[in-house]
Each structure stands twice: as C-alpha cells, then as structure tokens.
Design a protein around this nucleic acid. Sequence first.
DNA 1: CGGTATCCATTTGGATACTG
DNA 2: CAGTATCCAAATGGATACCG
Lengths: 126, 126
Amino acid sequence: MSSNCNLQLKNKNYTCTFEITIDLIGGKWKPVIIWHLGTKGTLRFNELKKLLPHITQKMLTQQLRELEADNLVLRKVYPQVPPKVEYSLTDLGHTLMPILSMMCSWGDDYYKQLKADLQQTMAESE
Amino acid sequence: MSSNCNLQLKNKNYTCTFEITIDLIGGKWKPVIIWHLGTKGTLRFNELKKLLPHITQKMLTQQLRELEADNLVLRKVYPQVPPKVEYSLTDLGHTLMPILSMMCSWGDDYYKQLKADLQQTMAESE
DNA sequence: CGGTATCCATTTGGATACTG
DNA sequence: CAGTATCCAAATGGATACCG
C-alpha cells in the first residue's frame, strides 16, 4: 500500500519511527501521567488522580493499563484490604523524561511568547 | 475547578505547559507533516500528500490549517491557474525540530529493542 | 491543482452506578 | 481503595462527489 518504509509492531503499521513514539505517549493524558511519575516517583492510584483533577477514573485506569502494556509504567499491587496499588516508571519510561522535559519548556516558551504578544497588541491599541 | 495551575489560551484550559505542546503537535499527522517540512524545506500540497500516503485530502488540509493558525506553518498561495500553494515551517515551527528529532530516535530505539527481544524469544523457544 | 461539502463509521471520552 | 460495567455524547477520521 505504502510507498514509504513500513514498520510493523503489535498489529499496527507505521511509516516513520516517531509515529511509534506518538502512539505510546500521545493523547491527552499519557504525557502528564508519565511526567508526574517521573518527577515525583512512585504514586498510588488516588495520588495520581488528585494530580489530574479532570481525568475520570475510567480514563486513568485505561491509560495506566496501556502504559503498563507498553512497558513504560510498572504496576505493583499489594494484596491487602483495602487495596493498595502503586505506579512507577520503568527504566524505559524514564528514558522518555528528556523528551517530555523539552516539550514542557517549549510549551512554556510558547505560552509566554503569546502572552507577551497579546500585551503588545493591547498596548498598541490604546 | 482545578487545584493545579490553570493556563488559558485561545479558550482552552491547560494544567501544564506541555499540554500546550501536545495540543499543537499531538495527533496522528502533525508531527510527520512538520518533520517533512523541516527536513525537506518548502513543499507543495501534492508533494506533502505523496509523502503521507495514508492521509486523506481532507485531513491534510485540516491539519495544515491548524498548523497555520498556530503559527507553525506558513502557507503561500500563488495566484495562478492551476493553483500553486507552498507550505513551509515558520521560525517557530523550526524550534520544534529538536523535539521531533528526539521523538524519532526514541521511537527508533524502541522499535529496534522490541525486534531484538522478539528474536531473543524466538531463539529461546527452539 | 488544491481544495470544499456532505455523509457516515469509528473512536474516544465522560457520567453514573456498582464491587471485592 | 482501586477499580468494573454500562450507556451515551462528542470528537475524529474516512469516502465520495464536486468546484474555481
């Protein structure tokens, strides 16, 4: 079908290797989850939930399961009542931190620049 | 609502600056589009389309419009028949390349590692 | 050539209720 | 505490036809 290179992984096709990266850490929640685990270390389910005020329980569970399946996050269950589940980054997960860090500061710069431009525009219109 | 920091930009709310980055370059197509424009320079609509064999015309147009609105891509229309439209990265767009580059090589490593692990598993099962 | 417009299928995500 | 299950709404994306 494709004239480009075709990479296959887990029944999915990619035309470029960073489609793989996007697939693993793209989406609304995954980068933030990884970021929190990377900067704060091991976190329990509800601790994560508090750090992501807008996520629903369903989404958090779902995203964590996917991250686990992709070997980016480690899930440790303590067999006790009430249950205790801890999440942390795997070694592979940690290797993503430099990328996320760059994305974070880029977003920061973009935000500041846009705010500055807005101030500029408002000042000029006076 | 949110106990975290709350950033607002263009009627959207973010709790962290890299949600902004994700919003701008996340999704299935944008990174690849930016990547092609960054590595190959100016491209016409149909040249881009050939580089992304699976994208539909609608999606390509849509993504390019969004990238343009976010000041990452420059759209230059030549007023002639048949039409000629050229796309290129803005200065801001270029600042994304180091991030995309890292994502690309990370995806590359991940792919190679997984393939290597697979070979290993197959070898052991013999 | 470089698009729009329309329609429709799939995917994603949210609200709510329930559970070991 | 850390989830499942179910249902439903919204967003995303693809096929197709048409246009200046």
